[in-house]
Design a protein around this nucleic acid. Structure first.
Lengths: 196, 196
DNA sequence: GTTTTATCTTGCCAAATGACAAGAATTGTA
DNA sequence: TACAATTCTTGTCATTTGGCAAGATAAAAC
């Protein structure tokens, strides 16, 4: 069980659950290795796996109304990665989930997670809190998108996820920030010339 | 139970639950009437009520980093209204939830909803699906905020919630769209002069 | 009904961002 | 290594949006 230490700690830090029950939970997770550029989920398919990312970097993206590739999120270690909508509604996904680097994760299938939800009240409480947490994060990003300039969002990204600049193309980071790669190039050029 | 018809139908349309169990659920909801301008939740307090809005219009807003009042959402009939983060984490809310008109709703307290979650599996499944649904809606708005112009977002709002122009000030709608009231005034002036 | 206050519009100008195209730099591949 | 394909940068110019201030309009208070 030692190999699932980060998974164990992740659950422990996000809910009040006894170690015995956490062990009971984590033993249902199966290892999943993904190679750089591989898809964990492709648009049009149904998301069947909840994945806890132990190591690596992941980008999710969709095609918007104009057919443009828009990065919806970046993920790194110790984060859950899945399309909640497709997973819980059993509907086809609009999202693509792609590995930016080789990744190692731990997965639960839809059926397994549902069984655990029904049999372990603490785990479903954990599941709900995770969902609410993601919801909050998204709300923050929403507010940031509506009230901050692209440059401010860029500086925040540097703070929160500096590694991503090493693994993602600037073009894909630009779409995450909601701007064109052209504007992004200029913003990066000027951002540190100004006082903040 | 006839007075809870819209609540009944709302649950029925969002999950697969027998009528008997829905009746078991809805009987725990209590009526709540709110007058125009009253607060259902104020920033700094803990959200203790899950409310299903049967009639009326509601605005939620927060104060951003610069202390500006920013509208985070509008709600109208047949929508759940609460601050999920504050409600489930038992944390103080940043959101203000205020009635734009006299409202009638049905509420569940935190304790009641938790009891129901534990005793009625179908209801907690309903709860999860509601949460995921809101999550999707927020994702859509996020995408819209990042990829569309303010004018496009304005036209979408007219489609989805035309009534709101009757009940909210333009200033508050502007902040919902992520622009100033000045820009909004110009956009409204020009929006219908152009072909779309 | 008049005054006060808040909201909305408009003008002027500046800043932020986009569209497009041409190079430069980088990466992948034969 | 050399060719091809991407990605990134830069220039030019247009569009979108913001900031500020002055009026106009509407709503609230007295």
């Amino acid at each position: 069980m030692k190999d699932k230490e980060s998974l164990f700690k992740f659950i422990q830090s996000n809910a009040v659950i006894s170690e015995a029950i956490i062990n009971e939970i984590v033993k249902h997770f199966e290892v999943k290795n993904v190679r750089k550029d591989d898809f964990i989920l492709s648009a049009g398919k149904i998301c069947n796996e909840y994945m806890f990312l132990e190591e690596g970097y992941i980008r999710t993206y969709i095609y918007d109304y104009n057919g443009c590739d828009v990065t919806t999120n970046f993920y790194f270690k110790n984060q859950p990665v899945f399309d909640a909508s497709s997973f819980f509604f059993r509907s086809t996904s609009k999202e693509n989930i792609q590995a930016l680097t080789d990744c190692k994760g731990w997965i639960l299938s839809y059926d397994t997670i549902n069984n655990l939800f029904h049999s372990i009240p603490e785990f479903r409480e954990f599941g709900r809190l995770m969902l609410v947490k993601e919801f909050c994060t998204l709300k923050e990003r929403m507010l940031s998108a509506l009230t901050e300039t692209a440059e401010e969002r860029y500086l925040t990204l540097i703070q929160n996820n500096p590694d991503i600049f090493q693994y993602s193309s600037l073009k894909n980071i630009a779409s995450y920030l909601g701007i064109t790669d052209t504007s992004f190039s200029r913003i990066r050029k000027n951002a540190f010339k100004k006082p903040h």
